[in-house]
Amino acid sequence: MFKSKQPAMYKFLFISLISALALNLTAQNIPSVEIKTMSGKTFNTADLTNNGKPIVISFWATWCKPCVKELSAIHENYIDWQEETGVKVIAISTDDSRSMSRVAPYVNSKGWDFEVYCDPNGEFKRAMNVANVPHTFLLDGNGKIVWQHTSYIDGDEEELFEKIKEIK
């Protein structure tokens, strides 16, 4: 392909992209990508809504320890968060077909009451430019990404909650 050769075409494309960015950069909306519901139905990510209230989208996997820690920490506070801000948490499992069947029983036994979807081939993950899990996005009532965070350490959920409250 283009190893060590850089046709002028690409430079031009790159520069055009950058200038286009400079001209009309706006906050990012949720891209439209097909993911799977827990019952195996196809679901378009553009339809993720929370009636004008904030949304948290968290990319995770059953085999990812910090991801599970993060969602557990959110789960412990979820009722309070919902009461105070009306936020909805959507957990996107990046488990592939090896561990996809584990997602539903795992989520259920954890008692998580988030909306959970599966993205087995990383399509939504790629569209959202997620490099590593956990990766959490905060969207305002208009579906614009206002804040995002990668990795998780104990206590990070408090910063997330502060950011949710700032939206109001």
Partner: peptide, 21 residues
Amino acid sequence: IAFSSLFSQEEDEKKGHFSGN
């Protein structure tokens, strides 16, 4: 890209956006 630049004066939703990592 050229088009998006031309129409960049339009309202927000019509604008393109750029992202990456």
